[in-house]
Amino acid sequence: MSLDKEKIKHVAKLARISVDEAKVDSLTKDLNSIFKFIEQLNELNTDKVEPLTSILNQSLRSRKDEISDGKIREKILKNSPKKK
């Protein structure tokens, strides 16, 4: 399939990235060449294959639900662009 300019503008909206109108053409060209490359996967029949969701043979560890950190409000706020 090919991506048209409107579709790309819609995806950019979803991703919360404003796209410069002057750059839409070259972006469309680049993304289409990337998707053409990606779509090689359609050559493969994967009907009977289970998707791989983790490469580790372990399930995620659980931990006690208790606070191990905290009281660092000032430290965290140090990096905010603007604060009251």
């Binding site: 996967l41 359609n42 994967t46 294959v49 289970e50 998707p51 791989l52 969701t53």
Partner: peptide
């Protein structure tokens, strides 16, 4: 796309 890629990732592994 995404699910397809996860399946092919399984084949690669």
């Amino acid at each position: 796309y995404y699910l397809k890629a996860q399946k092919v990732r399984q084949l690669i592994k």
